[in-house]
Design a binder for these strands. Structure first.
Lengths: 243, 243, 243, 243
DNA sequence: TATGAATGAGTCTTCATTCAT
DNA sequence: CATGAATGAAGACTCATTCAT
């Protein structure tokens, strides 16, 4: 009988194992020996197996719990905050809680391929919350309309990696913001061809807008242009005054 | 006697092993058995060991080659393209070539901690090219000034993860663009507190700019504001006309 | 978690492994596969590793146990026998119990170079007992004064090799006695030059004492001398009568 | 075609390999990789195999050469020195040239069990020389009559081990002398029972001869006896004067 | 029921031996 | 013939999983 136990100590043990596994996976990657998890939990290896029939299931349980926590946090945000805040707060939450890169990297796999129904259900709930938050934010105009839930998930995965890669945590968080801000309507995504190989050096020699980097048409006479237009000039000015 | 050999078949085998290892690491993660690599390369396990004294060294060789290719591509771009194009093209290159998530995740480790001198030298070269491209792009005004090489590396790692996470490759590439565009001067990074937990729902109820998501000051009377200012109003309008 | 267990079967298995290892090392040398040891012990390879983290440690454990038994035997002798008897009995014990040549040959290494503290302590105890027995025997006049503990150890190693080399065990033991008797005060050790290359054949043509081999001064006339002195002549006579 | 080659360079290579193998076996034990031997010899692994079909044969060749050298040295001694000198010099030679304990320990195996005819013949020659020297020395009265060739071989093996065990080489050589001196007629070998467990401590309390360690009968009155007889008393006196 | 001991399949690595250059 | 590259059979060691206590 797996895990359905009703004795208090059994439930306590299950929880201990789950926590220990969560930490272990995060700190040491998905390859931590089960023995290490058992040690961290302060139980025997057999006890781990009593509650989780194998390592895969344990990993899924950990992941499920993780998702459940995220879902709960998402729902809380949905109830308490404005759509856009809720949405971006939710994403930050996901990213910050996804400590441990091996761990994070495997969130990737969490689309449809996980076989266990419990996990599938959980992933579904997660997607539902995410989607709800996303749509709300989009309706509120806080997020670009051409973004779907899959985009958000993938971007989140990327942010977690970025955060893991950057040793300096504050700097890492800034990069995460920078990335997530790409979801805001104001962000203009460069078309891929825009800066790919086709462009020749002579064209650029002309310089680009110092504010947004957009290409500037050369003008043979007069003072060289520095900005692509009034907006950018204003913006740059404001920045100068503010800075 | 490792690898220095000049016999044609030996060189061929070394190359085969290196390629096979690259693919294997990318597809199956860093845990692929060496036997699998040997099998893919069509050689015996011993041959792998003749060329690479152990798995770690093999991994480093693969990684070194990868970096070397990137360095070469970076230098080519530096010579042939305008700064900003060169820089962003380089980043896209890195991301696109960083197939395989386990693989990518370990680019992370490529700071100083790798012990082998050859790899260290290689990482250095990589950093040098990256830094040169970054600075050139910044001088050209194509990249925000408050970004350092470490930021770029971390962001790149994140982009690679994003790309790996997104099954739909074009969509993934678009997300990458979106992220990299965060490096352009026009991008405004939200201050972290802007959309974190501190904000209460009532405050937001006031709404935010539908274009950029910036908070809007409430006004008790009149038609409710939809944008934070003229610029955004214009932009939104243009989008509507274009869409 | 290595070996500290208190479960009866675990202790039993540990003992089985230790015994099997002892025999295996003795019979097949230090290169026996661990699998062979496991097979002899009737356990799986993993069990060996549960009790001994690696082969070296296993070897040290075997060796430690061996030394401990010798120490115990030495202490028993010290308490129950007269110094000289105790000493020589101890040496014989060591030699006879040092079955297996590879095994024996590595007793050599047992000076300070073994890193494990437990083994070091054990070697120390062994040296202490050996030294005590040696000194007591020397004080009692049963052992030459110009012999130190290191000499005894080395000689013992040699005796064990001799014993191992001689297929006929009683003959081997006799050779061991012969060697150990060299430690008794009555033994005269030939100076190294006495029978080395320097001597020319003509000098020897003169002959040497038939009993002790000492060189005899030539005498041009009379019956040739056969012995170096009266003592030897007597001794030879006695032998002839006895024989 | 193995080794029968007549080309000068082939013969030279064979010799190089043989020397290198000899050193390698002596320094690193019988487990030294063939590659190491090839490296030392400055040839490729294939060349080793061209001359010696496998490692065992190579080892035998090394051993054969070793024995041949010993045989030559023995024959030289036999021709040039008096029997006893020749004999003991021969033994010392064997011992001193048997550097490297693993190597030495395996001389043990050199009785009948070696299958290759060449080696067998060589061992035979060795035995013949040894036996001749032994018998000559015995006839000359320089070696006890109750010693056979097998005894000598085993003792030699033991001496080599002793020498290997004693870090301090001069001290080691002294121990070797001490052991070999046990072969001289003057040496009295204690009967095994003489100092084995049977004796009780009270009996020894009486003390033993300070010169030869023989047990002394207690005498209740008068000055306590220190020596077992006149011979020992004289000997001790001479030592005192000499010392 | 909890424990931790036992198992054995799987992985890395070495090295004797063969074989293409 | 010489070379050194390739091979693959072991051996040490790990760890998920089972099982006796």
């Amino acid at each position: 009988m797996i895990s359905g136990g009703d004795r208090a100590d059994a439930r306590r043990n299950r929880a201990k194992v789950l926590s220990a596994a969560g930490e272990a996976f995060a700190e040491q990657g998905l390859d931590v020996p089960l023995g290490e998890i058992a040690r961290r939990a302060g139980v025997g290896a057999g006890t781990v197996y009593r509650h989780f029939p194998n390592k895969q299931v344990l990993l899924e349980a950990v992941f499920t719990r993780h998702l459940d926590e995220l879902v709960a946090s998402g729902e809380r945000r949905m109830a308490r905050f404005a759509p856009t805040e809720a949405f971006f707060g939710f994403l930050l939450d996901i990213v910050e809680k996804s400590h441990g890169r091996g761990y994070v990297c495997d969130v990737v796999a969490a689309d449809a391929s996980w076989p266990r129904p419990m996990l599938a259900a959980c992933v579904l709930r997660f997607r539902r919350v995410l989607t709800a938050l996303l749509h709300a934010a989009q309706r509120a105009g806080g997020v670009r309309a051409d973004i779907g839930p899959d985009d958000v998930v993938s971007l989140t995965v990327g942010c977690a990696s970025t955060l893991a890669a950057r040793r300096d945590r504050p700097a890492g968080l800034r990069l995460v913001q920078l990335t997530l801000d790409g979801l805001r309507p104001s962000a203009t995504v460069t078309k891929r061809q825009d800066f790919r190989d086709g462009l020749d050096i002579r064209q650029e020699a002309v310089a680009c807008c110092e504010e947004c980097g957009a290409a500037l048409t050369v003008r043979p006479t007069g003072r060289p242009v520095r900005y692509c237009g009034a907006t950018c000039r204003q913006r740059a000015r404001r920045r100068r005054l503010a800075g």
